[in-house]
Design a protein around this nucleic acid. Structure first.
Lengths: 163, 163
DNA sequence: ACATTTATGTCAGCCATGTTGACTTTTTTC
DNA sequence: GAAAAAAGTCAACATGGCTGACATAAATGT
């Protein structure tokens, strides 16, 4: 398995270096990328939810979140039903930046899947899920499924209103 | 591809957390793990080779390397043909620790491959290679092949002498 | 009504690990 | 004998983790 251990190291390093280059231009780092990514995937999420996903402390998150809000990449609105909550949304500016990250990382993955054969997508997906700690798997898969559904719902709504 | 982007994040986080727990007991971090791993794979490698693989600065490496040498995990010997070089070797202590990392990470990968079907190993391998920047692929694959061959050569030598 | 809990934010300081720049020593190479 | 290469070191700085302590606003329970 030594080869796969190392390939995972080299592959992941290149994978995260794509966003890194873009982030440099804004004076941001990887921490900012992660926040933007998950807020994009779960618009209106609470700060606590983000902490649970990232598994970092409130203080660590606070630093990068403040910069993202101050510089107009993220919008933080009080919750309607519970006004203690700060619900997080991307601004158009934040959305544009996040799309860059998604585009470049998707391109790398798509290329890799094409190069590794027809049925690779489902198999790679199963492999990655199985690499996650068993006790975290179902919550992780649910999280991803929820985000995917929300994307579908939003695009369906756009279809009805704007077209 | 959003699901795969996220699965890669979660999977890799768990993957590196295995060694992290062990390292804590020694007051070491991920940087120490990487150094031990590659010195294990390439016994007698030069400091420069390690810098090329890790892509960090001499100063960053210097800190962790000094700790590993001082605490008897790594042995640094002057090269025979070129005495400017410091050739790096694991001590028995370093070897024992490194085997722990390899064992726990191999176990996770093996389990994941089993859970994702029979032919997954070769496909996952091809996928990971294809995730690497094209210009780095051949050197990376050569590096891994060289390390694998060296392992074989050493175990063959053990077979002839000790058994 | 009042006490408690929850969600969030913030200050201060520490640690690990990356960076740049400058400089030294030893040894090899031309 | 000069230049280049391999390695090491000092100093200073950035990022992004961490702990601990504390503050505020709002919801919840009795």
């Amino acid at each position: 398995m030594l080869d796969l251990i190392e390939l995972l190291f080299f592959a992941y390093r290149n994978f995260v270096s794509d966003p890194d280059e873009i982030l440099q231009g804004f004076g941001f780092g990887r921490a900012h990328h992660r926040v933007l990514h998950f807020v994009n995937r779960h618009p209106g999420m609470r700060v606590t939810d983000l902490l649970d996903i990232l598994r970092i402390t409130k203080q660590s998150l606070g630093r990068v979140l403040r910069e993202l809000v101050d510089q107009g990449f993220i919008d933080s609105r009080a919750g309607a039903s519970d006004r203690r909550q700060r619900l997080l949304y991307l601004t158009p500016k934040g959305e544009a930046l996040t799309q860059e990250f998604v585009a470049i990382q998707s391109r790398r993955i798509r290329r890799a899947l094409e190069e590794s054969g027809g049925e690779s997508r489902e198999l790679v997906r199963r492999f990655l899920v199985a690499m996650i700690d068993p006790e975290d798997r179902s919550s992780t898969e649910k999280l991803i499924a929820r985000a995917d559904q929300a994307v579908e719902a939003r695009s369906a709504a756009r279809g009805r209103t704007a077209g």
